[in-house]
Nucleic acid binder design. Structure first.
Lengths: 201, 201
DNA sequence: TTTATATGAATGAATG
DNA sequence: CATTCATTCATATAAA
């Protein structure tokens, strides 16, 4: 019982980040399952940990991004693509191989700001009166002092390569393991009833 | 050089405390923004500092409260309403001035211990039994490292009645304390438009 | 210098 | 998926 809270080991973290980097966003249960299995090689871990990790990581990533964009656009309303901010979340296109982990993702992932503001495009102009994202975090952007909370980053490149293969494999489990990271279950199968994700019910 | 860690200046601190005293608890992003702007007059500060400040302050406040209550209850299990403890969080009602710093807040704020245990302390149960839904909740069954988030599980009604209800009952807050502790800006005014984000209700 | 405490920062875990 | 809560980590400062 004394496992109050899971804490990812460096290796686990690295793998997760790698998957994330490869655009895994909403892993299906079976993916979570597999990932968990694999990660358990490096330390205790449960499915929920993996699940939550992706949830949080994605959320915080996007929040940060959102704020960066906002901030940027405020300064540069007309021109916004001259910078260097990280890449948002494109949708992957699952291959038709039988491996989930083998995602084909758009070689170019248009930042799809769209996904960032899928439900409230108007928030870009929330400065004065305040359309509000609610406190959760904007953590950033201010009169002049920006600076986001740094995400924990695992260094240690060596281990990285080690995992590479597995990750790649992971990313492709085939269609029946359910498509990778689409936010909306467009290709949902019987096992995964859509939850009406993006919509405001 | 690197300002490793923000440290509020006395004036900043004072303002923050004042807002907190006025029951600001979960400032929205625009509120955070405004506050940050204002506080930057007195020293370097970023949105995240403000955000974290509220998070931490609230958390520690409630933590302390919780402890006090517990302590008290241990000594005085049957009598607990002779006390003087501080008050938890109602929502502020923004004035129609354009300054956040002068908020009008509800004159009455029933302690609403409710807020202290707003979500089920299901901490007691940590075994999940799984169905198999979509990735989000099935969360279970695995080689050995199972356990997905149990979200709605909570078997055994008894656990349900845990701390929350119990504490409430012990403390006697009266029925009318319930209404006030909404987490969302129910009484948000023009200054703090709700974001209508999820709108899941 | 070492230890204890206050608190900023970060993130896991939920809930709705 | 947005929010919020609980914990924990990290560091600055006070105390010993």
């Amino acid at each position: 019982m004394p496992r109050p809270r899971w804490s990812p080991t460096p290796q686990q973290m690295m793998i997760l980040q790698d998957l994330y980097r490869k655009r895994m966003r909403n892993p299906t249960s079976s993916q979570v399952q597999k990932i968990t299995d694999h990660l358990s090689l490096y330390g205790n871990i449960q499915c929920k940990n993996v699940f939550y990790w992706f949830q949080n990581h994605k959320a915080r990533d996007r929040q940060k991004l959102r704020k960066e964009l906002l901030h940027k656009m405020q300064k540069n309303p007309s021109d916004d693509d001259d910078d260097d901010f990280p890449a948002p979340q494109p949708q992957l296109t699952p291959t038709n191989t039988s491996n989930i982990l083998d995602y084909n993702f758009p070689a170019n992932f248009p930042p799809t700001l769209h996904t960032l503001y899928s439900h409230s495009p108007s928030m870009l102009i929330d400065q004065a009166e305040g359309k509000d994202t609610s406190s959760a975090q904007m953590m950033n952007n201010n009169t002049g002092n920006v600076d986001f909370p740094k995400q924990c980053v695992i260094e240690n490149g060596m281990i990285r390569t080690n995992v590479q293969d597995w990750v790649l494999m992971m990313i492709d489990m085939g269609p029946n393991s359910i498509p990778c990271c689409s936010n909306r279950p467009l290709e949902t199968l019987e096992l995964f009833p859509i939850k009406a994700t993006g919509f405001k019910e």
